[in-house]
Write a protein that binds this DNA or RNA. Structure first.
Lengths: 223, 223
DNA sequence: AATTGTAGTGAGTACTCACTCATTTTTTTA
DNA sequence: TAAAAAAATGAGTGAGTACTCACTACAATT
Protein backbone atom coordinates (compact mmCIF):
# COMPACT_ATOMS: atom_id res chain seq x y z
CA UNK A 1 0.00 0.00 0.00
CA UNK A 2 1.36 3.39 -0.90
CA UNK A 3 0.40 6.84 0.16
CA UNK A 4 -1.12 8.17 -3.04
CA UNK A 5 -3.06 5.11 -4.12
CA UNK A 6 -1.40 4.87 -7.49
CA UNK A 7 -0.97 1.18 -7.00
CA UNK A 8 -2.34 -1.65 -9.00
CA UNK A 9 -2.11 -0.67 -12.61
CA UNK A 10 1.36 -2.08 -13.28
CA UNK A 11 3.23 1.11 -14.07
CA UNK A 12 7.03 1.10 -14.13
CA UNK A 13 8.27 2.04 -10.69
CA UNK A 14 9.92 5.26 -11.84
CA UNK A 15 6.86 6.45 -13.70
CA UNK A 16 4.84 5.72 -10.62
CA UNK A 17 7.17 7.80 -8.45
CA UNK A 18 7.07 10.69 -10.90
CA UNK A 19 3.28 10.71 -10.93
CA UNK A 20 3.13 10.65 -7.14
CA UNK A 21 5.57 13.53 -6.88
CA UNK A 22 3.76 15.48 -9.59
CA UNK A 23 0.41 15.08 -7.84
CA UNK A 24 1.96 16.50 -4.70
CA UNK A 25 3.62 19.47 -6.38
CA UNK A 26 0.73 20.24 -8.75
CA UNK A 27 -1.80 20.26 -5.96
CA UNK A 28 0.33 22.60 -3.85
CA UNK A 29 1.27 25.10 -6.56
CA UNK A 30 -0.93 24.40 -9.52
CA UNK A 31 0.29 23.06 -12.85
CA UNK A 32 1.82 26.26 -14.18
CA UNK A 33 3.72 27.28 -11.08
CA UNK A 34 5.04 23.78 -10.51
CA UNK A 35 8.54 23.12 -11.83
CA UNK A 36 9.89 19.92 -13.26
CA UNK A 37 12.96 20.30 -11.08
CA UNK A 38 10.83 20.25 -7.94
CA UNK A 39 8.94 17.22 -9.18
CA UNK A 40 12.25 15.46 -9.80
CA UNK A 41 13.50 16.35 -6.33
CA UNK A 42 10.29 15.02 -4.78
CA UNK A 43 10.53 11.82 -6.78
CA UNK A 44 14.17 11.40 -5.78
CA UNK A 45 15.44 11.26 -9.35
CA UNK A 46 17.26 13.51 -11.80
CA UNK A 47 15.30 16.05 -13.77
CA UNK A 48 16.33 14.51 -17.06
CA UNK A 49 14.82 11.16 -16.08
CA UNK A 50 11.37 12.69 -16.06
CA UNK A 51 11.62 13.25 -19.77
CA UNK A 52 12.40 9.61 -20.45
CA UNK A 53 8.93 8.77 -19.18
CA UNK A 54 6.98 11.87 -20.18
CA UNK A 55 7.69 13.85 -23.33
CA UNK A 56 6.57 17.16 -21.80
CA UNK A 57 5.36 18.59 -18.53
CA UNK A 58 1.85 18.65 -19.92
CA UNK A 59 2.24 14.93 -20.53
CA UNK A 60 2.70 14.38 -16.81
CA UNK A 61 -0.66 16.05 -16.25
CA UNK A 62 -2.17 13.76 -18.86
CA UNK A 63 -0.60 10.83 -17.06
CA UNK A 64 -2.35 11.84 -13.85
CA UNK A 65 -5.59 12.27 -15.77
CA UNK A 66 -5.45 8.85 -17.37
CA UNK A 67 -4.50 7.23 -14.11
CA UNK A 68 -7.36 8.88 -12.24
CA UNK A 69 -9.84 7.86 -14.91
CA UNK A 70 -8.54 4.31 -14.76
CA UNK A 71 -9.06 4.13 -11.03
CA UNK A 72 -12.48 5.74 -11.02
CA UNK A 73 -13.91 3.85 -13.95
CA UNK A 74 -12.01 0.65 -13.26
CA UNK A 75 -13.87 -2.61 -12.80
CA UNK A 76 -13.23 -2.86 -9.09
CA UNK A 77 -14.84 0.45 -8.46
CA UNK A 78 -17.79 0.13 -10.76
CA UNK A 79 -18.71 -3.30 -9.57
CA UNK A 80 -19.02 -2.28 -5.97
CA UNK A 81 -21.83 0.11 -6.79
CA UNK A 82 -23.48 -2.41 -9.05
CA UNK A 83 -23.33 -4.92 -6.22
CA UNK A 84 -25.10 -2.48 -3.94
CA UNK A 85 -27.80 -1.86 -6.48
CA UNK A 86 -28.22 -5.53 -7.27
CA UNK A 87 -28.70 -6.35 -3.59
CA UNK A 88 -31.02 -3.44 -3.08
CA UNK A 89 -34.35 -5.27 -3.18
CA UNK A 90 -36.29 -4.86 0.01
CA UNK A 91 -34.09 -2.16 1.46
CA UNK A 92 -35.40 1.38 1.73
CA UNK A 93 -33.86 4.25 -0.25
CA UNK A 94 -32.28 5.62 2.84
CA UNK A 95 -30.20 2.51 3.39
CA UNK A 96 -29.29 2.17 -0.26
CA UNK A 97 -28.43 5.84 -0.56
CA UNK A 98 -26.24 5.56 2.48
CA UNK A 99 -24.40 2.57 1.09
CA UNK A 100 -23.91 4.25 -2.26
CA UNK A 101 -22.80 7.56 -0.73
CA UNK A 102 -20.46 5.81 1.66
CA UNK A 103 -18.95 3.86 -1.21
CA UNK A 104 -18.49 7.00 -3.31
CA UNK A 105 -17.06 8.99 -0.40
CA UNK A 106 -14.49 6.29 0.26
CA UNK A 107 -13.58 6.47 -3.42
CA UNK A 108 -13.27 10.25 -3.29
CA UNK A 109 -11.09 9.95 -0.22
CA UNK A 110 -8.76 7.58 -1.99
CA UNK A 111 -8.37 9.63 -5.16
CA UNK A 112 -8.79 13.09 -3.71
CA UNK A 113 -5.29 14.49 -4.34
CA UNK A 114 -5.25 13.52 -8.00
CA UNK A 115 -8.90 14.38 -8.54
CA UNK A 116 -8.23 17.80 -7.12
CA UNK A 117 -5.36 18.35 -9.53
CA UNK A 118 -7.24 17.39 -12.65
CA UNK A 119 -10.41 19.21 -11.63
CA UNK A 120 -8.50 22.40 -10.97
CA UNK A 121 -6.58 22.18 -14.21
CA UNK A 122 -9.73 21.33 -16.14
CA UNK A 123 -10.61 25.00 -15.70
CA UNK A 124 -7.70 25.95 -17.94
CA UNK A 125 -7.15 22.97 -20.25
CA UNK A 126 -9.97 22.14 -22.62
CA UNK A 127 -8.68 18.66 -23.34
CA UNK A 128 -8.59 17.77 -19.64
CA UNK A 129 -12.10 19.10 -19.12
CA UNK A 130 -13.42 17.15 -22.07
CA UNK A 131 -11.78 13.93 -20.89
CA UNK A 132 -13.20 14.32 -17.39
CA UNK A 133 -16.65 14.94 -18.76
CA UNK A 134 -16.57 11.98 -21.13
CA UNK A 135 -14.93 9.48 -18.80
CA UNK A 136 -16.13 10.41 -15.33
CA UNK A 137 -19.04 12.79 -15.14
CA UNK A 138 -21.12 11.47 -17.98
CA UNK A 139 -20.94 7.79 -16.95
CA UNK A 140 -21.48 8.68 -13.30
CA UNK A 141 -24.60 10.64 -14.15
CA UNK A 142 -25.88 7.78 -16.29
CA UNK A 143 -25.31 5.30 -13.50
CA UNK A 144 -27.07 7.49 -10.99
CA UNK A 145 -30.00 7.94 -13.33
CA UNK A 146 -30.47 4.19 -13.50
CA UNK A 147 -30.49 4.08 -9.72
CA UNK A 148 -32.99 6.91 -9.54
CA UNK A 149 -35.25 5.42 -12.17
CA UNK A 150 -35.43 2.22 -10.14
CA UNK A 151 -36.11 4.12 -6.94
CA UNK A 152 -38.84 6.22 -8.53
CA UNK A 153 -40.39 3.15 -10.09
CA UNK A 154 -40.63 1.56 -6.66
CA UNK A 155 -42.25 4.67 -5.24
CA UNK A 156 -39.34 5.48 -3.01
CA UNK A 157 -38.55 8.87 -4.48
CA UNK A 158 -40.84 11.67 -5.60
CA UNK A 159 -41.93 11.43 -9.19
CA UNK A 160 -43.28 14.97 -9.38
CA UNK A 161 -39.86 16.55 -10.03
CA UNK A 162 -37.27 16.04 -12.74
CA UNK A 163 -34.72 13.34 -11.99
CA UNK A 164 -32.09 15.98 -12.88
CA UNK A 165 -33.21 18.01 -9.89
CA UNK A 166 -32.97 15.01 -7.61
CA UNK A 167 -29.54 14.26 -8.96
CA UNK A 168 -28.46 17.86 -8.50
CA UNK A 169 -29.61 17.87 -4.93
CA UNK A 170 -27.73 14.71 -4.06
CA UNK A 171 -24.63 15.94 -5.90
CA UNK A 172 -24.79 19.36 -4.34
CA UNK A 173 -25.17 18.10 -0.82
CA UNK A 174 -22.42 15.53 -1.31
CA UNK A 175 -20.11 18.12 -2.88
CA UNK A 176 -20.39 20.55 0.01
CA UNK A 177 -20.01 17.66 2.42
CA UNK A 178 -16.75 16.65 0.76
CA UNK A 179 -15.52 20.22 0.38
CA UNK A 180 -16.06 20.87 4.05
CA UNK A 181 -14.32 17.68 5.10
CA UNK A 182 -11.41 18.13 2.73
CA UNK A 183 -10.75 21.84 2.63
CA UNK A 184 -11.48 22.70 6.26
CA UNK A 185 -10.71 19.23 7.47
CA UNK A 186 -9.16 19.90 10.88
CA UNK A 187 -12.53 19.88 12.54
CA UNK A 188 -13.88 16.66 11.07
CA UNK A 189 -13.00 13.24 12.33
CA UNK A 190 -13.56 9.90 10.68
CA UNK A 191 -15.53 8.60 13.67
CA UNK A 192 -18.26 11.19 13.08
CA UNK A 193 -18.56 10.03 9.50
CA UNK A 194 -21.47 7.69 10.16
CA UNK A 195 -23.52 10.18 12.11
CA UNK A 196 -22.71 12.90 9.60
CA UNK A 197 -23.83 10.72 6.73
CA UNK A 198 -27.14 10.05 8.47
CA UNK A 199 -27.76 13.76 8.82
CA UNK A 200 -26.76 14.37 5.22
CA UNK A 201 -29.14 11.75 3.93
CA UNK A 202 -31.90 12.94 6.18
CA UNK A 203 -31.78 16.42 4.72
CA UNK A 204 -31.49 15.13 1.17
CA UNK A 205 -34.50 12.91 1.72
CA UNK A 206 -36.82 15.14 3.69
CA UNK A 207 -35.56 18.66 3.12
CA UNK A 208 -35.33 21.49 5.57
CA UNK A 209 -39.01 22.27 6.00
CA UNK A 210 -40.94 21.18 9.06
CA UNK A 211 -42.42 17.75 8.51
CA UNK A 212 -46.16 18.40 8.67
CA UNK A 213 -46.82 22.13 8.76
CA UNK A 214 -50.35 23.46 8.33
CA UNK A 215 -49.32 26.44 6.26
CA UNK A 216 -48.22 24.56 3.20
CA UNK A 217 -51.06 25.50 0.92
CA UNK A 218 -50.61 23.71 -2.34
CA UNK A 219 -48.63 20.82 -3.63
CA UNK A 220 -48.76 21.93 -7.22
CA UNK A 221 -46.80 19.81 -9.64
CA UNK A 222 -43.50 21.51 -10.34
CA UNK A 223 -42.25 19.25 -13.08
CA UNK B 1 -22.33 50.33 -17.33
CA UNK B 2 -19.29 48.29 -18.17
CA UNK B 3 -18.87 44.68 -19.01
CA UNK B 4 -17.03 43.46 -15.93
CA UNK B 5 -18.94 45.37 -13.29
CA UNK B 6 -15.89 47.02 -11.82
CA UNK B 7 -17.73 50.27 -11.73
CA UNK B 8 -18.63 52.40 -8.80
CA UNK B 9 -15.67 52.45 -6.51
CA UNK B 10 -13.92 55.46 -8.07
CA UNK B 11 -10.75 53.79 -9.29
CA UNK B 12 -8.49 55.63 -11.71
CA UNK B 13 -9.55 54.75 -15.24
CA UNK B 14 -6.29 52.97 -16.09
CA UNK B 15 -6.27 50.91 -12.93
CA UNK B 16 -9.82 49.95 -13.74
CA UNK B 17 -8.86 48.85 -17.22
CA UNK B 18 -5.92 46.83 -15.93
CA UNK B 19 -8.11 44.99 -13.44
CA UNK B 20 -10.69 44.22 -16.11
CA UNK B 21 -8.04 42.87 -18.43
CA UNK B 22 -6.40 40.88 -15.65
CA UNK B 23 -9.70 39.26 -14.68
CA UNK B 24 -10.15 38.18 -18.26
CA UNK B 25 -6.64 36.77 -18.67
CA UNK B 26 -6.42 35.20 -15.20
CA UNK B 27 -9.72 33.43 -15.61
CA UNK B 28 -8.71 32.02 -18.97
CA UNK B 29 -5.19 30.87 -18.10
CA UNK B 30 -4.88 31.02 -14.34
CA UNK B 31 -2.66 33.41 -12.44
CA UNK B 32 0.65 31.67 -13.07
CA UNK B 33 0.24 31.06 -16.77
CA UNK B 34 -1.03 34.58 -17.40
CA UNK B 35 1.58 37.07 -18.59
CA UNK B 36 1.76 40.75 -17.82
CA UNK B 37 2.34 41.44 -21.49
CA UNK B 38 -0.98 39.83 -22.39
CA UNK B 39 -2.76 41.77 -19.68
CA UNK B 40 -1.26 44.98 -21.07
CA UNK B 41 -2.37 44.08 -24.58
CA UNK B 42 -5.90 43.41 -23.36
CA UNK B 43 -5.98 46.66 -21.46
CA UNK B 44 -4.68 48.55 -24.49
CA UNK B 45 -1.70 50.00 -22.65
CA UNK B 46 2.04 49.48 -22.49
CA UNK B 47 3.39 46.74 -20.26
CA UNK B 48 5.36 49.25 -18.20
CA UNK B 49 2.22 51.15 -17.30
CA UNK B 50 0.92 48.17 -15.34
CA UNK B 51 3.79 48.56 -12.90
CA UNK B 52 2.95 52.20 -12.22
CA UNK B 53 -0.33 51.01 -10.72
CA UNK B 54 0.67 47.64 -9.31
CA UNK B 55 4.05 46.90 -7.83
CA UNK B 56 3.99 43.25 -8.87
CA UNK B 57 1.84 40.79 -10.75
CA UNK B 58 0.70 39.34 -7.44
CA UNK B 59 -0.44 42.83 -6.54
CA UNK B 60 -2.88 42.78 -9.45
CA UNK B 61 -4.42 39.64 -7.99
CA UNK B 62 -4.71 41.40 -4.64
CA UNK B 63 -6.37 44.30 -6.42
CA UNK B 64 -9.00 41.95 -7.83
CA UNK B 65 -9.45 40.39 -4.40
CA UNK B 66 -9.98 43.73 -2.66
CA UNK B 67 -12.32 44.90 -5.35
CA UNK B 68 -14.42 41.75 -5.18
CA UNK B 69 -14.63 41.93 -1.40
CA UNK B 70 -15.69 45.56 -1.66
CA UNK B 71 -18.51 44.72 -4.01
CA UNK B 72 -19.74 41.68 -2.11
CA UNK B 73 -19.56 43.17 1.36
CA UNK B 74 -20.40 46.70 0.25
CA UNK B 75 -23.34 48.49 1.81
CA UNK B 76 -25.49 48.31 -1.30
CA UNK B 77 -25.27 44.59 -1.42
CA UNK B 78 -25.68 43.84 2.24
CA UNK B 79 -28.63 46.09 2.65
CA UNK B 80 -30.70 44.38 0.00
CA UNK B 81 -30.67 41.13 1.94
CA UNK B 82 -31.36 42.93 5.18
CA UNK B 83 -34.32 44.58 3.53
CA UNK B 84 -35.69 41.23 2.49
CA UNK B 85 -35.31 39.85 5.98
CA UNK B 86 -36.80 42.93 7.59
CA UNK B 87 -39.88 42.72 5.38
CA UNK B 88 -40.21 38.99 5.91
CA UNK B 89 -43.00 38.97 8.49
CA UNK B 90 -46.03 37.10 7.32
CA UNK B 91 -44.37 35.57 4.27
CA UNK B 92 -43.62 31.87 4.21
CA UNK B 93 -40.05 30.55 4.09
CA UNK B 94 -40.44 29.54 0.54
CA UNK B 95 -41.08 33.09 -0.59
CA UNK B 96 -38.34 34.53 1.57
CA UNK B 97 -35.87 31.87 0.51
CA UNK B 98 -36.70 32.58 -3.11
CA UNK B 99 -36.16 36.29 -2.66
CA UNK B 100 -32.88 35.73 -0.86
CA UNK B 101 -31.61 33.17 -3.36
CA UNK B 102 -32.64 35.33 -6.28
CA UNK B 103 -30.82 38.28 -4.76
CA UNK B 104 -27.67 36.23 -4.14
CA UNK B 105 -27.77 34.65 -7.60
CA UNK B 106 -27.97 38.07 -9.20
CA UNK B 107 -24.97 39.05 -7.12
CA UNK B 108 -23.05 35.96 -8.16
CA UNK B 109 -23.91 36.67 -11.78
CA UNK B 110 -22.51 40.16 -11.52
CA UNK B 111 -19.24 39.20 -9.85
CA UNK B 112 -18.76 35.76 -11.32
CA UNK B 113 -15.63 36.38 -13.40
CA UNK B 114 -13.70 37.95 -10.56
CA UNK B 115 -15.07 35.57 -7.95
CA UNK B 116 -13.97 32.69 -10.09
CA UNK B 117 -10.44 34.06 -10.30
CA UNK B 118 -9.98 34.60 -6.60
CA UNK B 119 -11.64 31.32 -5.64
CA UNK B 120 -9.41 29.40 -7.99
CA UNK B 121 -6.28 31.14 -6.81
CA UNK B 122 -7.29 30.73 -3.17
CA UNK B 123 -6.32 27.10 -3.64
CA UNK B 124 -2.69 28.15 -4.06
CA UNK B 125 -2.31 31.42 -2.16
CA UNK B 126 -2.85 31.26 1.58
CA UNK B 127 -3.30 35.01 1.94
CA UNK B 128 -6.07 35.03 -0.66
CA UNK B 129 -7.82 32.11 0.99
CA UNK B 130 -7.64 33.72 4.39
CA UNK B 131 -9.01 37.03 3.08
CA UNK B 132 -11.91 35.30 1.36
CA UNK B 133 -12.76 33.39 4.49
CA UNK B 134 -12.62 36.43 6.76
CA UNK B 135 -14.36 38.88 4.46
CA UNK B 136 -16.85 36.82 2.51
CA UNK B 137 -17.55 33.34 3.80
CA UNK B 138 -17.58 34.02 7.49
CA UNK B 139 -19.92 37.06 7.35
CA UNK B 140 -22.17 35.30 4.84
CA UNK B 141 -22.51 32.29 7.09
CA UNK B 142 -23.26 34.52 10.08
CA UNK B 143 -25.94 36.38 8.16
CA UNK B 144 -27.54 33.16 7.01
CA UNK B 145 -27.54 31.81 10.54
CA UNK B 146 -29.51 34.81 11.72
CA UNK B 147 -32.02 34.17 8.97
CA UNK B 148 -32.26 30.50 9.88
CA UNK B 149 -32.61 31.18 13.58
CA UNK B 150 -35.58 33.43 12.83
CA UNK B 151 -37.14 30.87 10.54
CA UNK B 152 -36.70 28.05 13.03
CA UNK B 153 -38.10 30.22 15.81
CA UNK B 154 -41.22 30.78 13.75
CA UNK B 155 -41.58 27.08 13.12
CA UNK B 156 -40.93 27.37 9.43
CA UNK B 157 -37.89 25.14 9.34
CA UNK B 158 -37.15 21.86 11.07
CA UNK B 159 -35.58 22.25 14.47
CA UNK B 160 -34.56 18.62 14.78
CA UNK B 161 -31.37 19.05 12.72
CA UNK B 162 -28.32 21.28 13.15
CA UNK B 163 -28.61 24.67 11.49
CA UNK B 164 -25.22 23.87 9.92
CA UNK B 165 -26.80 21.00 8.04
CA UNK B 166 -29.59 23.23 6.81
CA UNK B 167 -27.06 25.81 5.72
CA UNK B 168 -24.98 23.18 3.99
CA UNK B 169 -27.98 21.89 2.10
CA UNK B 170 -28.94 25.33 0.85
CA UNK B 171 -25.34 26.16 -0.05
CA UNK B 172 -24.79 22.84 -1.77
CA UNK B 173 -27.91 23.04 -3.87
CA UNK B 174 -27.20 26.65 -4.78
CA UNK B 175 -23.59 25.87 -5.62
CA UNK B 176 -24.44 23.10 -8.05
CA UNK B 177 -27.18 25.28 -9.52
CA UNK B 178 -24.65 28.04 -10.19
CA UNK B 179 -21.96 25.67 -11.40
CA UNK B 180 -24.35 24.12 -13.89
CA UNK B 181 -25.53 27.49 -15.16
CA UNK B 182 -22.06 28.98 -15.38
CA UNK B 183 -19.82 26.13 -16.46
CA UNK B 184 -22.19 24.36 -18.83
CA UNK B 185 -24.18 27.47 -19.54
CA UNK B 186 -25.16 26.94 -23.19
CA UNK B 187 -28.22 24.99 -22.23
CA UNK B 188 -29.59 27.38 -19.64
CA UNK B 189 -31.54 30.48 -20.47
CA UNK B 190 -32.40 33.38 -18.23
CA UNK B 191 -36.13 32.96 -18.87
CA UNK B 192 -36.13 29.58 -17.21
CA UNK B 193 -34.55 31.11 -14.13
CA UNK B 194 -37.83 31.56 -12.27
CA UNK B 195 -39.11 28.07 -12.89
CA UNK B 196 -35.68 26.61 -12.11
CA UNK B 197 -35.56 28.50 -8.83
CA UNK B 198 -38.96 27.13 -7.84
CA UNK B 199 -37.76 23.59 -8.43
CA UNK B 200 -34.55 24.25 -6.56
CA UNK B 201 -36.38 25.60 -3.54
CA UNK B 202 -38.89 22.80 -3.65
CA UNK B 203 -36.19 20.18 -3.34
CA UNK B 204 -34.34 22.12 -0.67
CA UNK B 205 -37.54 22.44 1.33
CA UNK B 206 -39.12 19.05 0.93
CA UNK B 207 -36.30 16.76 -0.15
CA UNK B 208 -36.41 13.97 -2.67
CA UNK B 209 -38.49 11.44 -0.74
CA UNK B 210 -42.11 10.81 -1.55
CA UNK B 211 -44.29 13.10 0.50
CA UNK B 212 -46.30 10.67 2.66
CA UNK B 213 -44.98 7.16 2.24
CA UNK B 214 -46.12 4.37 4.56
CA UNK B 215 -42.76 2.72 4.79
CA UNK B 216 -41.04 5.45 6.76
CA UNK B 217 -40.78 3.65 10.04
CA UNK B 218 -39.26 6.05 12.51
CA UNK B 219 -38.66 9.74 12.78
CA UNK B 220 -35.91 9.46 15.31
CA UNK B 221 -34.22 12.71 16.27
CA UNK B 222 -31.03 13.04 14.30
CA UNK B 223 -29.58 16.08 16.01
C1' DA C 1 8.69 81.06 -23.12
C1' DA C 2 10.88 78.41 -19.83
C1' DT C 3 10.48 75.19 -16.14
C1' DT C 4 8.62 71.74 -13.58
C1' DG C 5 5.66 67.73 -12.85
C1' DT C 6 3.28 63.67 -14.30
C1' DA C 7 1.66 59.79 -16.96
C1' DG C 8 2.98 56.62 -20.28
C1' DT C 9 6.21 54.00 -23.01
C1' DG C 10 8.76 49.81 -24.63
C1' DA C 11 13.43 48.17 -25.27
C1' DG C 12 16.46 46.27 -22.08
C1' DT C 13 17.89 43.20 -17.96
C1' DA C 14 18.36 39.60 -14.97
C1' DC C 15 16.54 35.46 -14.23
C1' DT C 16 13.72 31.15 -14.48
C1' DC C 17 12.23 27.10 -16.57
C1' DA C 18 11.18 23.18 -19.76
C1' DC C 19 13.70 20.41 -22.26
C1' DT C 20 18.34 18.32 -24.48
C1' DC C 21 22.32 15.56 -24.83
C1' DA C 22 27.05 14.09 -23.94
C1' DT C 23 28.61 11.45 -20.32
C1' DT C 24 28.40 8.11 -16.51
C1' DT C 25 26.29 4.21 -14.12
C1' DT C 26 23.76 0.09 -14.04
C1' DT C 27 21.89 -4.00 -16.07
C1' DT C 28 21.79 -7.58 -19.40
C1' DT C 29 23.85 -10.73 -22.36
C1' DA C 30 27.38 -13.81 -24.11
C1' DT D 1 34.26 -11.34 -16.91
C1' DA D 2 33.90 -8.45 -20.93
C1' DA D 3 31.12 -6.25 -24.13
C1' DA D 4 26.87 -4.24 -25.37
C1' DA D 5 22.61 -2.10 -24.24
C1' DA D 6 19.74 0.53 -21.47
C1' DA D 7 18.84 3.75 -17.93
C1' DA D 8 19.92 7.67 -15.40
C1' DT D 9 22.27 11.85 -14.83
C1' DG D 10 22.70 17.01 -14.43
C1' DA D 11 25.11 20.86 -16.61
C1' DG D 12 23.85 23.39 -20.48
C1' DT D 13 20.60 25.97 -23.76
C1' DG D 14 17.48 29.13 -25.50
C1' DA D 15 12.89 30.79 -25.23
C1' DG D 16 10.30 33.58 -22.57
C1' DT D 17 9.12 36.15 -18.17
C1' DA D 18 8.42 39.88 -14.55
C1' DC D 19 10.03 44.00 -13.77
C1' DT D 20 13.18 48.49 -14.64
C1' DC D 21 14.46 52.79 -16.34
C1' DA D 22 15.90 56.29 -19.53
C1' DC D 23 13.18 58.64 -22.27
C1' DT D 24 8.93 61.16 -24.62
C1' DA D 25 4.62 63.83 -24.59
C1' DC D 26 2.22 67.02 -22.79
C1' DA D 27 -0.09 69.87 -19.28
C1' DA D 28 0.26 73.18 -15.51
C1' DT D 29 2.75 76.83 -13.36
C1' DT D 30 5.77 80.78 -13.20
Amino acid sequence: MDTQNLSGLDLPEKEHKILEAAIKVFSEKGFSAATTSEIAKNAGIAEGTIFRYFKTKKDILRGILVHTINIISGKLVLSSIEKILAASDGKDVRTILKEVLYDRLKLVDSVFPMARVILTESLFHDDVREAIYQNIISPAVEMFKVFLAKAIERGMIRDDIDPEIVLRSIMGNAAVFIAQRKLFSDKFLMEDMDKELDKLIDVIMYGIAVKNPDYIKSDKDLT
